[in-house]
Design a protein around this nucleic acid. Sequence first.
DNA 1: CGAAACATCCGCCACT
DNA 2: GTAGTGGCGGATGTTT
Length: 330
Amino acid sequence: MLKNVAVAICQDAPAFEIGVACEVFGFDRTAQGLPGYDFAVCACEPPPIRTSSGFSIDTPYGIERLAEADLIIIPGWHDIHDRPPEALLQALRDAVDRGSRVMSMCTGAFVLAASGLLDGRRATTHWRDAETLARHYPKITVDPSVLYIDDGAVLTSAGTGSGIDLCLHVLRTEHGAGVANAVARRMVVPPHRDGGQAQYIDTPVTEHSRGDDLSELLAWARAHLDQPLTVQGLAARANKSTRTFARHFVAVTGTTPHQWLVTQRVEMAQRLLEETDEAVEVVAQQSGFGTAAMLRHHFGQRRGTSPQMYRRTFRSGSRARDRHRVLKAG
DNA sequence: CGAAACATCCGCCACT
DNA sequence: GTAGTGGCGGATGTTT
């Protein structure tokens, strides 16, 4: 259970990435029934810590505070050729040894890499630095094409913005989509981008912006997920050939039509598992997978558990949270 | 589980 | 010449 979150910073720390961590984990939303964390920004060099934007951060927490954390966040690293302090690397290894998790945003992956924690794992970083990471650390399987990678104890994310996605992903795995979406709503960011989504989106336009025909089509498709939908059918609806439709689709959303559909269906199934007591078979029907076997396959692939197991752990987690809420209220 | 049938995706390229 | 379109074929992934 995630309770204690620490952000490890050194000189020339990136302001925005620190801000993302503060906003997601350091902002008290317990009044809204959302989980709260013991949160600290920890100076791993003598404070004040200068940010890359010129202002300084003074924090009462030092590197020793990392020993308490269930999750340590590395918000970036000022110079990818500069080796981080050994004490920080050791603190990260200790964290993973005691069953805690560590995550990086952007170039923070180089800190995790230097600690050896990424050896033999899959990882990502900003596309600009991916090649350098792969060259310096050949034991890491670097995937520069995704927003973030969850490798269990070690999580990495790409550029600045994907750090938000990874933080929300952590909330999602920890407390379910309901909590992650509620936090996303409060931050006014899109609810969820799947880790596998491309870093590069040619048209910097989100799904919901403008009244272009695609956003309308996506809304329609989302409303009809329980029915069998084909890429051809969607293309026909948009009055385009499959080829042109698919091309536009990728340019706007960053995913292919079919992948997008599966993502939507998994998210719908997840909601149904959280919010209803319908049998897995029924959930599969309603989310458009047709059969339970199909749902298990895609759910497992994208969430790393079975639907049944997900519901069980989510339920027990939210019951614990409800109890917590009652105690706080009383 | 694996094999066979089927759909999707993507580079290539001719065409408007 | 530039920009967008869409058919084709085979690699890849999905469904049965």
